[in-house]
């Protein structure tokens, strides 16, 4: 199992060093980049969730430039991640609240369990530190204790939380919060929403309603719609982004849970197909663990520090 680059972002964690050791010798072994080697690389990418089609395309363009060359694993790693970074570069756009908006309204959406509430907590901390007056809105009125979860985050990061009674109408809550935020001169309004599967038409309609209702007060709101995506998600992420984008005009992505073994390769396919900005990545449960998205780092994490070609492996039977 190759180790995700992102775990290294968590300084001081012993677990990241454990798996790095074994592959150093491979750096000195050269090997011809032939069909078998390219097939192996393709499988590395598939195992990282790029999906067979995108993995195939990356390998094809890699083939055209390097086929037949004598390479070390380290060179392959660098070249392959550079290839992927090229796809990711255009979407590496940090999230910057517009100071002209008071408040800049951010609607945070996604399927269940991707980490919307945690992401909001982290964002509140970071923008709070930059001196922005941030208000959190507990728009997940459905899930048990979701409001309390956001309230605890609010206390942690020192941001006020606007909440309604259980099962309250999220659209009404967002409307009130926007009014209040405007009146109090807040800089940033982060609205949490209940997780919902994108194929549930009625639930998606609810989300569209939140936007419609807010626009009665400020027709430019929301200024950002962030889709939070779990890095362990496979090819279904494409459907998620497609549907959320179509129904609630998603403006950017946040990819969470990159501190695990998941490598989040689906982001490459997403960048390729939708070209939506990826604003940030989540690499842990602490407030500091939300980082800007870096194309180069992400690509390296995908390819894996431990990338190693098994010389002479027969592809179909090869085990990794």
């Amino acid at each position: 199992m190759a180790l995700g680059f992102f775990s290294r972002l968590k300084e001081g964690l012993s677990r990241s060093t454990q798996k790095l050791g074994g592959n150093l010798s491979a750096v000195f072994t050269r090997r011809r980049l032939d069909d078998a080697a390219l097939d192996e690389l393709e499988e590395v990418l598939i195992a990282a969730d790029l999906g067979p089609a995108v993995a195939g395309r990356v390998i094809e363009s890699f083939r055209s430039s390097r086929f037949g060359a004598e390479v070390t694993d380290a060179e392959v790693r660098d070249a392959l991640s550079a290839e992927i970074a090229r796809v990711l570069e255009p979407v590496a756009v940090p999230f910057t609240p517009d100071p002209a908006r008071r408040p800049h309204v951010v609607l945070v959406v996604g399927v269940n369990g991707t980490g919307k509430t945690t992401t909001i907590g982290k964002m509140a901390l970071q923008f709070g530190r930059q001196g922005l007056r941030t208000i959190l809105v507990a728009g997940d009125t459905f899930r048990a204790a979701a409001v309390e979860q956001l309230q605890i985050w609010g206390e942690r990061v020192g941001a006020p939380v606007i909440a309604g009674p259980p099962n309250a109408d999220a659209a009404g809550l967002a409307f009130e919060a926007l009014k209040k935020g405007r009146a109090e001169g807040a800089d940033l309004l982060l609205i949490d929403t209940a997780g919902r599967l994108h194929n549930k038409g009625a639930l998606m309609e609810e989300l569209a309603k939140i936007i419609r209702v807010m626009r009665k007060f400020d027709e430019t709101a929301p200024h950002s719609v962030l889709l939070v995506l779990d890095a362990t998600t496979g090819q279904n992420a494409i459907e998620q982004v497609r549907v959320f984008k179509e129904l609630v005009a998603v403006t950017g992505l946040v990819v969470t849970k990159l501190d695990g073994s998941a490598r989040g390769g689906i982001v490459v396919a997403l960048a390729d197909q939708f070209k939506l900005p990826v604003h940030a990545v989540g690499v842990g449960e602490q407030a500091e663990d939300l980082r800007p998205f870096s194309a180069a780092d992400y690509a390296r994490g995908l390819v894996g520090e431990g990338l190693k070609l098994h010389s002479g492996a027969v592809v179909e039977q090869g085990e990794d």
Partner: peptide, 15 residues
């Protein structure tokens, strides 16, 4: 396990 999980399902389940 989330049915939407991708290739990482292997690592998680194994671990």
């Amino acid at each position: 396990v989330d049915a939407m999980t991708g290739q990482d399902a292997v690592n998680t389940a194994k671990a």
